[in-house]
Design a protein around this nucleic acid. Structure first.
Lengths: 135, 135
DNA sequence: AAATATAGTGATAATGATTATCCACAGAAA
DNA sequence: TTTCTGTGGATAATCATTATCACTATATTT
């Protein structure tokens, strides 16, 4: 990630390094507030805005993926910065990465292996529609 | 839907009927503002809050599903109120329901049949984690 | 049909995550 | 050292959604 930042002409600041480390090392798909609190321990003067800016930067460079939700804050993943399924607890918000084989048995397998009680899912494909491709 | 509302002891008001009709008949996965504007033509005094309340109600009765986004308003589907994949234009926001067979070829098939240029996707499973199941 | 109880509506304030703004500062280049 | 641009910090602004609350409409009961 550091290399990617430098390559694009961005500076490596202590604050950025801190955000970056947390994103690269955490398995829990953290939210901004969580990252912010962790950073405050080492750099008490860090602003929340800086955390947002850094995440936004890494997101644009595709070093981090965002899991956006309408009813709560976004969650981030710097470990596997590419599309992959998630299991999300609708009660406590825990997020884990399931392993599975085919789409048909997917939900069943995921439920078994993860111990989650799957109630519903969401599968979205993003891209440009025919109209927008022309432009 | 009307039956479902009555069954749960809810009143059938003109405003609710209007929201309900729109949700049941539109193929475009409308957003709240769009629904609101359409309703204003027939019931100019309708409040935006009422639209939100009605949608929330239908969502709770599982008559409508919500596609929530972090960076824009939610979109709703009253035609197929059960989990199913979507193709979403990251430029204009157009949403369509693809048809496909297996997970492996899914993205490819969807791209071909829909004409979308798929760049990424999102597949989320929701449910209760082991901890929350105990409670 | 009138009365009553209560759910629903409308207007607006509040909320909360995220983004924009703006100024001061830091680090590289000259 | 001076300059120049990128970055950080603090806070205001934004925007979709929800909460609030007084008023109204609806369905039921009498």
């Amino acid at each position: 990630m550091v290399a990617a930042l430098k390559a694009q002409g961005h500076r490596i600041t202590p604050q950025r390094l801190a955000v970056l480390k947390i994103l690269a090392n955490s398995e829990n798909h953290p939210e901004v507030e969580w990252i912010y609190r962790k950073i405050k321990k080492d750099f008490p003067t860090t602003s929340l805005a800086t955390v947002y800016k850094t995440i936004h930067l890494l997101k644009e460079m595709r070093e981090v993926i965002e899991l956006g939700f309408a009813d709560r804050g976004s969650r981030y993943d710097g470990n596997k910065p590419y599309p992959h399924p998630h299991i999300i607890c609708t009660s406590c918000g825990a997020i884990v990465d399931p392993e599975f084989s085919s789409m048909d048995q997917m939900a069943r397998e995921i439920a078994e292996k993860s111990g989650y009680a799957i109630t519903h899912h969401r599968l979205d494909f993003f891209g440009l529609c025919p109209e927008c491709r022309k432009k």
